Simulated scan of single mutants.
Amino acid sequence: MDITNPLRLAVIVASNREGRFGPVVADWFAGSTAERDDFTTQVVDLADVDLPTALSHSPSPAVRAELAKVSPVLADADAFVVLTPEYNHSFPAALKSLIDWHFSEWQAKPVGFVSYGGISGGLRAVEQLRQVFAEMHAVTVRDTVSFHMAHGRFDEDGTPKDPTGPDTAAKTMLDQLGWWARALKDAKSTRPYAG
């Protein structure tokens, strides 16, 4: 762990639905990253961003204003964690829109996943996101954090009822993410990525 030069981690809260459960999981995960000295964390909450799904080579002023909320954070990040629910065996449209409006911001950077949902815990969304991020030239880490039947896994105060499994999974995922982020950052400092 290099605490003298912490990595910049962007945590993307992918759900923008009213009444979403994402903030509960995001608050818990923020506690996991706060305990680490090797990351500084910035949250990108897609409920605060309104990107259209139709892409354009010359975005309107309104779209440029929305991009200005997130593009600099993504560009500056050394690594990402995508915190996603599973909607209809996939991931939210707002997340796909965010991914599609960017390209170089993702290149040669690692992505970790925290997912939640019903019986699958959001893992089907994660598997689809691995394919999407591969197309963006990003590297996804193997281990994830997932909450199956998520609403029943947290107390009313937003803490996991049994924190052992999630805490261990978060540490493993963040350790892998940190390793990849340092390896890729060091590689890019000696030669540009050939994307």
Rank of each mutant, 00 (worst) to 15 (best):
Q131R: 13
A79N: 06
S189R: 14
K96G: 15
V44C: 01
A54P: 01
D45H: 00
W101T: 08
E156K: 08
F80N: 00
A150T: 04
S120Y: 08
A150Q: 01
G118K: 01
V126F: 05
D27F: 06
S32C: 15
Y193V: 15
Q107E: 13
P92E: 09
A10D: 02
A181R: 09
F113D: 08
T144W: 05
E135N: 10
A93Q: 12
A14N: 03
P110C: 08
G122H: 10
R130S: 03
V73S: 03
T164R: 13
V70I: 03
R153S: 03
G112W: 13
T84Q: 13
Y87T: 12
D45N: 13
D50C: 03
D48R: 04
L67M: 12
S146F: 10
S104H: 14
V24N: 02
A62R: 05
M1S: 14
S15Y: 06
L46H: 05
A170Q: 11
A94S: 15
F133W: 11
S32M: 15
L95C: 07
P52A: 04
S90P: 06
R182E: 09
A187C: 09
V114K: 08
F91V: 12
K109N: 09
G165C: 05
N88V: 05
S189L: 12
S15D: 04
V63Y: 11
A47F: 06
S120P: 04
V24T: 15
G118E: 04
N16H: 09
M173G: 07
Q107T: 15
D48N: 11
K69M: 00
V82L: 10
I3E: 10
A62H: 06
P85S: 09
A108L: 13
Y116A: 05
A134Y: 05
Q176E: 15
V24M: 08
H148C: 10
E66C: 01
F147G: 02
R36I: 01
E127L: 04
G121H: 07
K171P: 06
V44Q: 01
D27Y: 02
G158H: 00
T172D: 09
S15A: 01
V82P: 11
T53F: 13
G31T: 13
R153C: 09
A77C: 03
S115Q: 12
F91M: 15
A169W: 06
L129H: 02
W106H: 11
P72N: 06
M173K: 11
T41E: 00
K171E: 15
P92R: 08
E127C: 08
D50K: 05
M173S: 02
W101R: 09
A77V: 07
W106N: 14
T164I: 13
R182D: 07
S90Y: 09
A77E: 02
H102R: 10
P52Q: 02
A170T: 01
M136E: 09
D157K: 11
A93L: 10
A34F: 04
P110L: 11
F113E: 08
D27Q: 13
T172S: 12
A75I: 00
Y116E: 00
K185C: 10
D143Q: 03
